[in-house]
């Protein structure tokens, strides 16, 4: 049986170090399995978040050999085990303990985004009629499992710490899901421009690359949102035309 060495961040909010642990590797194992084995064998107080272990809850986000990944979906046979494997917490958020970070900022951001506001029901029984093709795009965004790996990799947050001015890819996707929801009547473009810093995104597409749900964050969510913001706030003639069309329609 092969053994591998995992170099895991141990420590609290202030100080920490990488500690090496060895454990057996068997067929089909993922990084989270290795962490669990280490907990059961040699480090019962090693802290990490996890829930579903199937890539559906987005709890076990970490940086594996420097790459933002879900530990439960990263197979060990895709990693070079002749070298130490480093496992570290996400860097865009304050560390709490070991692999756990303080992600509460994300929950605060979400509260600030205007909630879903549906149009009046289409049918007398209070229901709506929507075609599948009109919700395909929104359904893509709603696949998001809120693992915050996109937030972690975004240089605006990770390197420049603009958490106060920029809501990050996750919440741009969330805003896009609301803005493009066929029933929604709210307008969030003003907030996106003035409060949520959509202009900070310079479309490097790092977020799209790390998304475990393969949501095309930049192309399908952020760029169309940027266009909406431009249409609404920087193009007075276009705005007039649209207003006129809306009234006619």
């Amino acid at each position: 049986m092969a053994r591998a060495t995992f170099s895991i961040r141990r420590g609290g909010r202030e100080t920490a170090e990488l500690v090496d642990y060895q454990t057996d590797v068997t067929e089909g194992m993922v990084v989270l399995d290795a962490v669990h084995q280490i907990q059961a064998e040699s480090a019962p107080d090693l802290a990490c978040r996890w829930n579903c272990k199937a890539g559906k809850c987005g709890s076990c986000s970490a940086e594996i050999n420097g790459m933002p990944r879900l530990m439960c979906m990263t197979r060990l046979d895709t990693i070079d085990l002749t070298q130490k494997v480093t496992i570290e917490p996400m860097r865009a958020f304050p560390p709490v303990k070991d692999l756990i970070t303080d992600v509460s900022w994300n929950y605060e951001v979400k509260k600030r985004i205007k909630k879903f506001k549906p149009r009046k029901p289409d049918a007398e029984d209070g229901t709506w009629r929507i075609q599948q093709e009109d919700v395909d795009r929104v359904q893509e965004f709603r696949k998001c499992i809120e693992c915050y790996l996109c937030q972690d990799v975004c240089h605006v947050l990770r390197d420049h710490a603009k958490h106060q001015e920029f809501i990050g890819p996750r919440f741009l996707v969330y805003s896009a899901a609301l803005e493009m929801h066929p029933l929604d009547t709210e307008d969030r473009t003003g907030d996106l421009k003035d409060l949520f810093g959509i202009g900070y995104c310079n479309i490097t597409k790092c977020c799209t690359k790390v998304c475990p749900e393969h949501i095309t964050i930049t192309d399908n969510a952020i760029i169309p949102l940027k266009e909406r913001v431009v249409d609404e706030h920087y193009d007075p003639i276009g705005k007039l035309v649209k207003l006129f069309r809306k009234e006619k329609g």
Binding site: K115, F116, P118, P121, G126, T127, I130, V135, Q139
Partner: peptide, 20 residues
């Protein structure tokens, strides 16, 4: 279930636009 739709859930649709 219908209440969830009113709260923003996006279900798959039938051809006539209802919840599939």
């Amino acid at each position: 279930v219908r209440e969830l739709e009113a709260w923003g859930a996006v279900f798959d649709r039938t051809k006539d636009g209802k919840i599939l």
